[in-house]
Design a binder for these strands. Structure first.
Lengths: 241, 241
DNA sequence: TCCACAGTTCGATCATGGCCGAAACATTAC
DNA sequence: GTAATGTTTCGGCCATGATCGAACTGTGGA
């Protein structure tokens, strides 16, 4: 009927909740696998795979194969800028996601992000490690400092094993959408979560991405990863947990 | 589940074909009535009304009542910029509307845009009037010059009647989406089309917005509104908006 | 007053497209 | 080789939402 750029097509591509979640997750600037994106989008892998095929066909994302993984990233900064513009417009119009639904509070408190911890607790862990100088910036993003290596080892992580099986980046920051801040991902993020699950500090809620702390686990977590305020008001002194 | 701006909601609002057409039509920067927008979007008035309610609720358009008409316009330049960004991305990705479908060629050649003529013929008429100085820029957009008044009167338009019934702007430019240039709307645009229909230069195609010239009508039209090239072979080309 | 026109609401239909289970396919580990 | 993991395809179910006819409201003109 009309000609010109197909506004509807590109916007519809972005305007589907699962795909929007995928794109939002990719706004962190990193390439993520199909499985990771499925977890971020809250859909199964098959569904995410289909969505990613459409996004790729629409020129919004680009795939990159690496072994048996398929990583997807946004196709260039141009796409990111458009998404930012849309996010800004949505924010200006007061369109925020998740009027706190029934099971949302628990998800915000702590949840699994693929294989590591996200939500308020995930932010807490990340900030606490960062504030104490256990994590630091590195050329490729994020690295464990020497003090951090000591800390996580004393926490119970087998760092040597993690570094030996170098099939995965040790530290990675993952943008958290309930807080819009980074939390810890990567092999270490996974190991930390696994370890805390093993310690029974918390457990997965069946059929959900939510994580629920036990009362004792909550206390132990708070002690091990105190809020940043406790560390930043005056000085930089680390402390044993 | 997540928080932050609701990308999906705003994009889905834009990503519905009828709504995208409405928004694209409003990109011309003018306020249009529900009926006009319905014609532009290719849907009935009821449907357009519903869409406009959603667009308004989503903060993308603002209504303004004027008599029994309800005009809609984009809500600020911010919205326009986002739409431009999306259009640019769509164009960059090669997403053009209408792989020329079955009945598209005739629509591109000449069609009704609410009550006036659009398409290649509409552009031709507009450019031809402009090139000969019959139309000129005015504070509120577009105005008929004295020479233009003489011309349209000799063409057979009852200009006095048009000006008497001042329920509508005489001249208005309307952005043409098959050419992405302006064509003539307003009371004069309507009168011109009506007159040409009365002269049987062309007729409406049943069940479509397409207009079909008779062979004689085509010749007469070409004579009355010669291509701009014939009038500005060398220089001093005035510009459309 | 009656009529014409612009816009909205309601109800029912219906198609698009998202979703997941199951199973195939692909790659790497053992 | 077998097993495990990651990804894709297929098929069918199902909900969302676009669409239009019809009826209603409201405004303006004769």
């Amino acid at each position: 009927m009309k000609e010109g750029p197909d506004l509807a097509r590109i916007a519809a591509l972005i305007g589907e909740p699962a795909r929007a979640n995928i794109l939002t997750a990719l706004m962190a600037g990193r390439a993520l696998t199909v499985t990771e994106l499925a977890a971020e989008a809250g859909v199964t892998v098959q569904t995410a795979s289909g969505h990613l095929a459409r996004l790729e066909e629409g020129g919004l994302v680009v795939p990159r194969r690496s072994g048996r993984h398929k990583y997807f990233a946004l196709r260039g900064v141009e796409v990111a800028r458009v998404l930012e513009a849309l996010l800004g417009l949505a924010a200006a119009r007061g369109h925020l996601r998740s009027r706190p639904g029934p099971r949302d509070p628990s998800l915000r408190a702590a949840r699994v992000c693929y294989d590591h911890m996200a939500g308020e607790a995930g932010i807490r862990l990340y900030d606490s490690l960062l504030a104490r100088g256990f994590l630091g910036p590195a050329p490729e993003g994020l690295a464990l400092t020497d003090a951090g290596a000591t800390f996580v080892t004393s926490f119970g992580i087998d760092l040597a094993a993690l570094r030996a099986g170098r099939r995965r980046v040790l530290c990675r920051d993952c943008l958290d959408w309930s807080e819009r801040r980074s939390h810890l991902a990567g092999a270490l993020g996974r190991a930390m979560l696994d370890h805390m699950l093993g310690l029974a500090w918390l457990h997965r809620v069946e059929g959900s991405r939510a994580l629920r702390f036990t009362p004792a686990g909550r206390r132990a977590f708070d002690a091990a990863f105190p809020p940043v305020e406790d560390w930043f008001p005056e000085g930089s002194t680390p402390q044993a947990a």
